[in-house]
Structures are given as C-alpha cells and as structure tokens.
Amino acid sequence: MVRADWEAQFVEYFAARAQPLRRLAYSLCGDWHTAEDLVQLAFVRLYRRWPSIRGETVDAYARQVVVNAFLSHRRARRRESLMADLPERAVGSDPADGLAVRRALAELAPRQRAAVVLRYLEDLPVAEVAALLGISEGTVKSQTSRAIQSMRGALQGAALANEE
C-alpha cells in the first residue's frame, strides 16, 4: 500500500478515535492537557506501525499505549499527592458531581483506576481488561469490585453533601 493510501486510513482513524481516546486518557490522569499528550504519543506510535497493524487490533493497541504511558508517568512521579491529582478548576469548571468522580478516581491506585476506567468507561470485557493490563481476570474482578465500593462511597457522600 502506498503511503498516501495508508496515511488517509490513519487520518480517518484519528477522526474517529482521537476524542474517545482523549476521554480515556482524561479519566486516567484528570487533566486535559496531559490527556492530549498521552493521545498524541499513542497516535505517533500508531503512525510508525500503521502499515503493519492489523485492523482488528488497532483499537487495543491504541488503548494500551495510552494506559501504559499513563502508568509509566505515574511511576516516574516522586511523590503521590491526592491534591496534586486535582488540577485548578478551569473557567466553566466541573459541576460538583464531576469533582466527586475526580476525587473518587484519584483515591484509586493507578492500575486499579485503569481497570475501572477500561471496564466501565470503555465497556471492555473482563478478559480484554486483563490482557491489556497484564493481570488475571480474577484480579480485574476483585480490583474493580473494590474500586466500585470505594467510588460508591465517595459519590454517595458527594450526593448527600449536595442535598444539604
């Protein structure tokens, strides 16, 4: 396939998937600028491999680059801080519910957060989440179950606070 042809395919894929991937990245890192950096990284890597990637695996590959880049970025940070995960509120900032979700996600360990987001935002089956994170299906189920308990508490707490 000549380069013009596969670049056209690549651009079509970008148009379809850049926004959903950015949402995935945002749900992991909580910051839109960082999310765009993660997505750009994913697309640059996709570009390099495009001629040899099979159509049915490109989504899985793109997600994996985003998730791995997020997890590597987290490991490189010298100090985990809950407040550091919460960027300054932008103009037209999050409604209270959004802040509650952000806090609930920030309280999860990075890999647990990734499991929850892949399972419930990306709606991936347990087996695919397990393959993507390199863990067993049992671990996906237990991690997401614990995470849901934790998030439920945080979100219900926020809902109660809003009612007062």
Partner: peptide
C-alpha cells in the same frame, strides 16, 4: 458508576487541541 464516568469525561469537555495534520507531522 458507568454513567457517572461517562458524564465526567463529557461535561465541560474542551475542544480537541490535536489535529490530524499535527499528528501526521509528528508521526
């Protein structure tokens, strides 16, 4: 939880800063 996550990533979502052109050049 699923609904809350979906609302979280779409409410107040800013315009995409990345463009196909920019990504092609970087690639």
């Amino acid at each position: 939880v699923q609904e809350a996550l979906k609302a979280y990533v779409t409410d107040g979502e800013p315009a995409m800063g990345l463009t196909a052109d920019g990504v092609l050049k970087a690639g």
